[in-house]
Design a protein around this nucleic acid. Structure first.
Lengths: 209, 209
DNA sequence: GCAAAAATTAATCGAATTATTAAACAGCAA
DNA sequence: TTGCTGTTTAATAATTCGATTAATTTTTGC
């Protein structure tokens, strides 16, 4: 049997591991399954990563990185506030559309190892904190100009994430309960992008007296 | 060593199991831990429940039941629509406040056994479907009267659940990232109740031309 | 009180799964 | 050729964890 070079095989293992860990979480993922999916032998996992933990670590770190770099990319930019928020919601949504299982991975991993949170924070905490401060300043400014109600950046972020993330955690339940076909579901989800933008922007509207 | 009677011990085991399953999910929960937390020997779990699966089943069914009976209680009632929606959001929120780990339990269980969804549907699907239809009729009515924008009951439900549920799935991350003290976090969460009501109600406002 | 049943425990078994090693071999570069 | 890297197969050690068993204590009914 011909062989691949180092990086090809390693990448194949990583891809397989990502697939399995995303769908099962750490505890229910079997290294044998990962090996099988990667089309390699179990011993190769050991050769490249030594332990299941190491392999998971590699996958997890990569995913967290992609979340952060994608999901907060826009907020730091210099764009008009409303435009920026709309883009941010859409960007988050698109990311989730291509990575629907990532929220589950992160949540279940934090349930497994609560200390993971500190771990992540050390990598990206500073960055996130700066973005929040900048956003808060812009929100305050817009509020002073009477464009939006008074709102904390934190609450706005929670609103955005809530609207976007939960759908991808629960759509299997939804599909079943509403007897949607797969294509119906796809339409429903596609539709939620606009709905989410609307909700988030509406939540900012100045109070009516 | 003095002993408890049957129901006391059984209940102690159930309580311990609930605690552990809620925090870890099925796969990561260890029967030894449950036994230790209940203050009994591991073999007693088998004496009362025979298998880990049975024990989980008891906990899970109970939780699902409480979700359904609490969380959709108001929507069926005859109350003015806006009032009803506000109450519904608050009721969901209060439930989550007392049961913050339930969403994680349900989501992780469905990831483990996808067929669980059908299971739950058979118990409560009919009920939920009726509530959705009733709600849709009321929404259509209100739209005709120009009070709200056109919206599907399903989208409204997703909005409500999104706003309420996600917070409880991610607050550990939030707390860490924002360096909130426990009491700060408590305040923030308490505050979200009003924020969620506002968001959901705002999302219904008639479109501006 | 006493015998039978119920409750409980300690000890360990067995299955599943992960980690590890050994031996062999193919491809390739020096 | 020689030697190195990547890879495979095969086997097995180690571990984890749920399940079982057999013995012990407690409760209950008579």
């Amino acid at each position: 049997m011909p062989t691949n070079n180092h990086t090809d095989t390693e990448q194949a293992i990583l891809n397989a591991a990502e697939e399995v860990f995303l769908n099962k979480g750490f505890a229910m993922a079997k290294t044998v399954d990962i090996a099988k999916l990667a089309g390699v032998n179990q011993a190769l996992l050991h050769y490249y990563f030594r332990t299941k933990d190491n392999l998971f670590e590699a996958v997890f770190a990569h995913k967290v990185q992609s979340v952060i770099s994608t999901v907060f990319e826009v907020l730091g930019k210099d764009i008009p506030l409303m435009e920026k928020i709309r883009m941010q919601v859409e960007l988050q949504f698109d990311f989730l559309l291509s990575n629907p299982k990532v929220p589950f991975l992160i949540i279940s991993e934090i349930a497994r190892v609560p200390q993971r949170v500190e771990n992540i924070k050390q990598v990206v905490g500073k960055h996130v904190q700066q973005i929040i401060e900048k956003l808060q300043a812009e929100l305050d400014e817009a509020h002073r100009e009477g464009k939006i109600r008074k709102i904390s950046a934190l609450n706005l972020l929670v609103n955005m994430l809530s609207q976007n993330v939960l759908l991808f955690l629960v759509y299997p339940i939804f599909q079943s309960f509403t007897n949607m076909s797969d294509s119906d579901l796809k339409k429903f989800i596609a539709n939620r992008k606009q709905e989410n933008v609307t909700c988030v922007l509406n939540s900012l509207k100045a109070d009516e007296s």
